[in-house]
Design a binder for these strands. Structure first.
Length: 636
RNA sequence: GCCGAUGUGGCUCAGAGGUAGAGCAGCUCACUCGUAAUGAGCAGGUCGUCGGUUCGAUUCCGACCAUCGGCUCCA
């Protein structure tokens, strides 16, 4: 028998007889590895461990510590879920059941509506299947066999899937016990590998993600090789939920929602401090970067929206009203208003690029089921700007905006990912314009060395866009910053500038935001810091706690001094024990707590307590004031 | 909008077919206190809204509204 060589991840090369299974290879490397092995990655392709080694290859044995190993593990878990559901609810038809970021799901079509109690029963059945330790057996079948197989079982969704597979696709089936499913694989060797399973929720999901199709029932779950890992994960989930901006926002009195205005947030005094700080920082940076600021009306005549294309492409999301019998719309975007400002005078090519910013309040009709705290609302303030420029300036300007976005996110310590969204279905303009615009965005990203993924068909109706996505406490990502390149609006509004040749020329337009929406950004900030905002953003920066009422006057003097230095300060004059006030201030996440008693009054000092660090001891008042001013200025 | 769940005083949550409780917060009083909760008392709810069943519903049924988790959509 001939032998073949495998190159392992650590660079070493080993020889095995041709036809050795990858599981045997893993055993040849180490017993521990074989036990933890879930799948194999051979020359970049992930396959079952039962597959034979047929030729020289680069090989990685995948365990739960690798992303591919986890996916395989979760995917196998979803098959076990399907098997359990078929057993307990025999009439059920199967949709699809993939692995997802932190678990898996399976879509079912069933007369029976799954309840939370059912999930417990299904979990028990899954545990039984795990104990049986069925092997996952792969087989390859012809298209006809596959269709016949699923038709015989009434699995219409599976039949549809098979029919839609590409002509040259290898069609494979996986069997564990008496359960067989259409599946490309790979899978873990046997059900016994999936030691710890938790079904988390049931949700409706349209077949193939289209609202035109039937809604199926999707069961979400997660799984781990060890019970302890599952518990650890569930605990972390609970922890993450404690960061939820909706909860913290209420506790810290930042904002509220009311039945009288679903999706319309109310900002409270402390939330306004945050907003204003964000806006101040925004204005300061934009001024520095050559932006001007404008403010345009919220309600504008319908004709404007017809001209801009919003009437044709965005009507579903807009609110309308009548004024003196004429039709008006509440703006869902700021661009048409901004364009009117541009058009109030002639512009020379020498003036371009013109960067016009607007903190604009827009209203959009979001589906009721889509509303989500401050992360998805029906009115929000975009930190918008429209840049009018020469075609030759596009790339440079785009690179500048990308840098500005990166600068902002860095200040807040955010990590983000970038997507390039291309032409959607219901859009306007020529293919050539779209291609040009998309290429320009792509070139700018590449010139900046930014990693990005393409998000096909997700652009705005007037142009492609670069989206910047931030994470919430549960790992869901939300689009915040966006940069959109637009050749359509200048056309629609017959915009121009006077060129070197004295003739009229068409400018190009960039729409961009950095925060995206102030509301959404505040939500992300709140979750990112778990409500413990950095000093410069904190609604209350310092709280002074007099030990007894004879220290109140001094406490007020301390506060006055800080206040004069533009520090946001409060005095807790309640007649409570000092430890009670400290507890309170800590829970309110105030960055600096100043305790003042006899000693401090005597020496004009303050006893400083820093959030997260505890008691720092006494300090001269003036010294403390200077220190705080310095820290605020440095945006600490 | 669709699927499922939930909706009890400011907040967190008990509760049962016979018109509701606890803790925290609030208010009052006492304690004048040194780094994460002093004690006592008081007050506070037409049990999301509107209908229906019933002698009687907040508890059962229906519709609607809102919220939560998804789908779809999106800053």
């Amino acid at each position: 028998m001939s032998s073949v060589k495998v190159k392992l991840k650590d660079g070493s090369v080993k020889e095995f007889p041709r036809g050795t299974s990858f599981l045997a290879v893993a055993e040849g490397i180490s017993r521990g590895l074989a036990k933890a092995a879930l799948a194999a990655k051979v020359d970049g392709e992930v396959v079952d461990l039962a597959q034979p080694l047929n030729q020289d290859a680069e090989l990685e044995i995948l365990t739960f510590d690798t992303p591919e190993g986890q996916d395989t593990f979760r995917h196998s878990s979803s098959h076990i879920l399907a098997q359990a559901v078929k057993k307990l609810f025999p009439g059920t038809n199967l949709g699809i059941g993939p692995a997802i970021a932190n678990g898996f799901y399976y879509d079912f079509d069933s007369e029976h509506v799954f309840t939370p109690e059912d999930l417990t029963k299904i979990e028990q059945e899954m545990d039984r299947i795990v104990k049986q330790d069925y092997g996952f057996e792969r087989s390859e079948v012809s298209r006809e066999e596959a269709i016949k197989f699923f038709e015989a079982r009434g699995e219409k969704y599976k039949v549809e899937l098979v029919q839609d597979l590409p002509v040259d696709a290898v069609i494979s089936m996986y069997r564990q016990g008496d359960f067989v499913d259409l599946c490309a694989g790979p899978h873990v060797p046997s059900t016994g590998k999936i030691k710890a399973i938790k079904l988390q929720s049931v949700a409706g999901a349209y077949w193939r993600g289209s609202e035109k199709n039937k809604m199926l029932q999707r069961i979400y779950g997660t799984s781990f090789p060890k019970q302890a890992e599952l518990e650890d994960y569930l605990f972390k989930l609970e922890e993450a939920k404690r960061r939820d901006h909706r909860k913290i926002g209420m506790e810290l009195e930042l904002f509220s929602f009311h039945d009288e205005g679903p999706g319309f947030p109310f900002f409270h005094p402390k939330g306004m401090v945050l907003r204003n700080e964000l806006e101040n920082f925004w204005r300061e940076q934009h001024k520095k970067n050559g932006y001007q600021e404008i403010k345009t009306p919220i309600i504008l005549n319908r004709s404007l929206w017809e001209q801009s294309g919003h009437w044709d492409h965005y009507r579903e999301n807009m609110y309308f009203t009548k004024i003196d019998e004429a039709d008006y719309a509440v703006k869902p975007m700021n661009c048409p208003g901004g364009i009117l400002v541009y058009k109030t005078r002639l512009h020379s090519y020498r003036d371009l690029p013109i960067r016009m910013g607007e903190l604009g309040l827009v209203h959009r009709h979001e589906l009721s089921g889509a509303l989500h705290g401050l992360l998805r609302v029906r009115n929000f303030t975009q930190d918008d700007a429209h840049i009018y420029l020469l075609p030759s300036q596009v790339k440079n300007e785009l690179m500048g905006v990308i840098s500005l976005v990166d600068y902002f996110y860095t200040v807040f310590g955010f990590e983000y990912h970038v997507e390039l969204s291309t032409r959607p279905e219901n859009s306007m303009g020529s293919d050539a314009d779209w291609e040009m615009a998309t290429n320009a965005l792509q070139e700018a990203l590449e010139a900046k060395g930014v990693n990005y993924k393409v998000n096909p068909g997700d652009g705005a109706f007037y142009g492609p866009k670069i989206d910047f996505h931030l994470r919430d406490c549960l790992g869901r990502t939300w689009q915040c910053g966006t940069i959109q390149l637009d050749f359509q609006m200048p056309e629609k509004f017959d915009m121009h500038y006077i060129g070197e040749d004295g003739q009229k020329h068409r400018p190009v337009m960039i729409h961009r935001t950095i925060y995206g929406s102030i509301e959404r950004f505040i939500a992300i900030l709140t979750e990112h810091y778990a409500g413990a905002f950095p000093l410069w953003l904190s609604p209350v920066q310092v709280r002074v706690l007099p030990i007894s009422d004879r220290h109140e006057e001094y406490a007020r003097n301390v506060a006055a001094e800080l206040s004069t230095a533009d520090v946001r300060v409060e005095v807790d004059e309640r007649r409570e024990k000092i430890s009670y006030k400290i507890r309170q201030a800590q829970m309110d996440k105030v960055p600096y707590i100043l305790v003042v008693g006899d000693k401090e009054v005597e020496s004009r000092a303050v006893a400083v307590r820093r959030r997260g660090e505890g008691d720092l001891g006494a300090r001269e008042l003036d010294e403390f004031v200077q220190q705080v001013i310095g820290e605020i200025a440095k945006k600490l």
